[in-house]
Design a protein around this nucleic acid. Sequence first.
DNA 1: AATTATTATGCAACACAATGTCGGATATTT
DNA 2: AAATATCCGACATTGTGTTGCATAATAATT
Lengths: 188, 188
Amino acid sequence: MNKNPKRKMQTRSNLIDSFWLLYKKRHIRDISVRDIVELSGYNRSTFYEYFTDVYDLMDQIELHIIELLKDEMVRNLQDTEDPDIINRMDLFFKKNGEYLSVLLGEKGDPAFAVKLKAAIKPVLMQVLQLPKLDYESQLLFEFSLGGLLSALTYWYSDGMKIDSAEYSKIIKNILSNGSLKIVREMMR
Amino acid sequence: MNKNPKRKMQTRSNLIDSFWLLYKKRHIRDISVRDIVELSGYNRSTFYEYFTDVYDLMDQIELHIIELLKDEMVRNLQDTEDPDIINRMDLFFKKNGEYLSVLLGEKGDPAFAVKLKAAIKPVLMQVLQLPKLDYESQLLFEFSLGGLLSALTYWYSDGMKIDSAEYSKIIKNILSNGSLKIVREMMR
DNA sequence: AATTATTATGCAACACAATGTCGGATATTT
DNA sequence: AAATATCCGACATTGTGTTGCATAATAATT
């Protein structure tokens, strides 16, 4: 294999692109191998040269995004003394926002959020020097990251109606002061 | 139709139960109508008398849970002066925990979290008297509820290793003081 | 440089499984 | 005994995954 790597890369990329075009609109359960190869112009068998099934294709996209995120995180931790995690995450979200918002959204893959959290967890735990085995820090992590991803997905899916700076300010406020305090202030 | 409502209810219930037995272990994409009727002993056609497909069955389960939650919330808002929302949610989670943790979990349905939030949103917004159209309160809601559901799912899926009281204490602490403050305290 | 040998890449066709929809059999209620 | 709700068998269609083969691109040989 791999006699013509360029062509192979191209074919793979075409298949992925066609899938994504469909996935942006439809639920993955309504996307058949037929649909994908029809759109990209290949034979159905060709698909199976590259992926075992439609879900495998999605997994490979997810794996790619996770890799990008890991790289980004490693780079960020090196070149900054104050790791402004929220801003960094926003930035990453803007770059790969379409993929992320679809995969994290209503028609997305719940397993992706789990993978994403698992990738971020060790890095964040290390940066914040949280006690790993402590149940409170586990819950804190789950809560905070779950909240962050929910908010990001909402913001992005809703068309990013406020700008990045304002968004960051709000999220930082929540993280710094806690939801209840802010609610109390709002009620006044 | 409905000449024998008892039988019909029973059949429907049997089909749902068989589905759930499979769904607890497998991903929904790997569950065929065949699998369900084989387990419950019905003909495949019978399935289609009750549901349009496997996903419709899941939707009906989800709808049922959402209804239960709404009822619970309405009842709670009536009989208490201090609506301790977190405790109430835990209680509800314990009652319907298996369904919730599966549907919200890794092999679950991302649309369910969206539906759940949408059901809770109007009630909560009213109780807290938050300004509906304010973008900050939208984000606050998404963040907090996203965080709560993530933490609950983690706690439950992990086998509820700490008891309910302790769990509530931790979550309340996060909600009251904010994640960052707690992290700072932990680092000391 | 031209031609042949090699093999990576893509395809047509096959067997099988799953889907959804009939019309009809059966069993339960009235 | 009559009526009809409930369930089932059989059909056509669509989707899946695999096999062996054609084609086109590279490498080898002269």
